[in-house]
Amino acid sequence: MSSPSVPNRPTLDLRALTPARVALGRSGASLPTRPLLDFTLDHARARDAVHAAFDAERMIAELAGFGVPILATRSRAADRGDYLRRPDLGRQLEPTCAEHLAACAADAGRLAIVIGDGLSPTAVHAHAVGLLRALLPMLAEAAPVAIGHIIVASGSRVALGDEIGAILGSCMVVMLIGERPGLSAPDSLGAYLTFAPRPGRTDAERNCVSNIHRAGLSYGEAAFKIAWLVRAGLSRGVTGVALKDESGDLPARIGTALPE
């Protein structure tokens, strides 16, 4: 018995469904000029995002209206070049900054929110404030989650949040950080959640909500997932592989659209 015929859909249709490089065509044995120029432009944007300077002062000014104490800190990476060559330095607080945070530990809350530049300061500048604007009201709903501080961390890798959270005595850290740029998304923001943060935590002990950008998760969608994971993580005393994201089982929230 023959199987029913399947309509022949051209590969070109896939281009309407994904930003991936498919159905680019060819010119002889090479790419046509337009896809080659597009690739070169996207590669340049990704490189620019990695090497962009992080404007911590601007970030602090934009966060001032949220009504949460804000602290500035930095890693042991002396500059951007140092940060890229020595990932280990981006995971350790600069000693005087560690002392400053320790002096604020008495005011610690259940949750610390760290904003780090990561591998794409461009993503942090574009999306961190908008995401927080959607997230903080969700954390303030029924059974509010107490937030001790928002920390702006320069030269930051994800694990820097572990030391910050341990010094502040926070039960959980949410790290908002620029993700490694891709050729289709140089400004993707990620959120990493770690319960009982301390140096030495592994990635298996974290939850991640990633791909927060114009073609990915909206602020509302990402904030809903993060808020669910925060509450579930605090309630169960775990994050990482022991905490499955079940936020999709709840009624969907209307996503906050990202700016064009």
Rank of each mutant, 00 (worst) to 15 (best):
L31Y: 12
R110V: 10
A153T: 00
A78G: 04
F195H: 13
L14F: 01
L234M: 11
A56G: 06
I60V: 15
A185V: 04
D107E: 14
S27D: 13
T33L: 14
M172G: 01
S218T: 15
G148R: 02
S170T: 06
E57I: 02
G118Y: 00
A106W: 14
P199N: 07
G178P: 07
Y219A: 00
G178S: 03
E99I: 05
R157V: 03
G182T: 14
P137F: 08
A191L: 05
R201C: 08
T73I: 06
D88S: 02
T194D: 09
A77D: 07
E205V: 00
G233D: 01
V173N: 04
Y219F: 15
S5K: 11
A61N: 13
I164F: 06
A126C: 10
L111F: 09
E246Q: 12
W228I: 04
L131F: 15
E99F: 02
G130R: 00
R91T: 06
A20H: 15
L183V: 10
A257F: 08
R86A: 02
P10F: 05
L136Y: 08
V238C: 14
R253W: 06
L89T: 10
I147F: 13
R47Y: 03
S156C: 15
P186E: 10
A128T: 04
S2K: 08
A29M: 13
H127C: 11
R26K: 09
R45V: 04
L89G: 04
Y83V: 04
D107W: 06
R21E: 07
N207L: 05
H100Q: 11
A98R: 13
G165Y: 09
S3V: 07
D203P: 06
L132C: 13
G116M: 02
A185S: 14
R91V: 01
S156H: 12
V209R: 08
L229P: 00
Y83T: 03
D82W: 06
A232N: 05
A140E: 14
T122E: 08
L84I: 10
D162R: 04
M59A: 02
I151A: 09
A257W: 12
G237R: 07
A185I: 04
R15N: 05
D82Q: 07
T18I: 06
E62G: 05
D82A: 09
V174W: 01
H149S: 05
E62I: 03
R9A: 09
